[in-house]
Design a binder for these strands. Sequence first.
DNA 1: TGCGAATATGCTGCGTTTCGAATATGGTGC
DNA 2: GCACCATATTCGAAACGCAGCATATTCGCA
Lengths: 136, 136
Amino acid sequence: MKDVRRLKAGIFQALGHPTRLAILELLRDGELAVGTILARLGIEQANASQHLSTLRARRLVNNRKEGNQVFYSVRDPLLLEVLEIMRRYSMAHLQEDLALLRELEGEDAPRSRVARRPVGARRRKGRRTAAGPHRA
Amino acid sequence: MKDVRRLKAGIFQALGHPTRLAILELLRDGELAVGTILARLGIEQANASQHLSTLRARRLVNNRKEGNQVFYSVRDPLLLEVLEIMRRYSMAHLQEDLALLRELEGEDAPRSRVARRPVGARRRKGRRTAAGPHRA
DNA sequence: TGCGAATATGCTGCGTTTCGAATATGGTGC
DNA sequence: GCACCATATTCGAAACGCAGCATATTCGCA
């Protein structure tokens, strides 16, 4: 019961990265060699390999080795269906949700994954200075 | 284009936690007050509130305040459909995937989230001290 | 056998997630 | 106003995720 939920969570988590979604979208129409994926996404080789590894670990994709290269493919079309529903979902909410993106990320920060706050400057709200604990 | 993918990834990420999945499953049949969710899941109040906050941030749920309490509900039935397909997916692969769970988690790691390394002992950084031995 | 191409893996440095505990906030009833 | 529920937010520490870099491994080929 609980394990099943963890399983699903693991799958969703694997789907929870733009690059991995991009990879799966590429694979929607059939298998592709890693090299092709690299070229189409324009990302670092090691990086892609790592994401592929994640997808493999959750068994979302199959991989077949042919000579020098490795071909990946989506393991179960049901997964594509999940993506399809999600596509519809995000379509339905595009407007508000794009605004949401800015809100979540642009709040006060740049878009990349760099420091969105002065690094080291935690925003302390100096409380607990004198008041005693009242719940213990 | 790219942003849309990040949006979807964000949603999937929000779905990528057992507790949050459990919450959404509870909400499948209608809205519930936080207190009810707490009781049914048997988790810490703060913890639940945090997860609810995540779901709210991604706009996966609606919340309505009534007097003292707050009622949450799933925002779009399409999301439930996603969950439904995923349920079918995991059903289809239950056997192998449960084995996978052990493989991923039981590998060598403790299940709890307590110190798996001596606290303070950062993984050594002096890399390749001498003649990096190759994996053997 | 040695070389180069295609992929995978290990490591490190961030930033982020998660949890429990403490605390804050809003609403109700007295 | 004050005590008191129900819920949210903040903090601190451990674990995790991700990117880039360096290195391994495997295969094909001269």
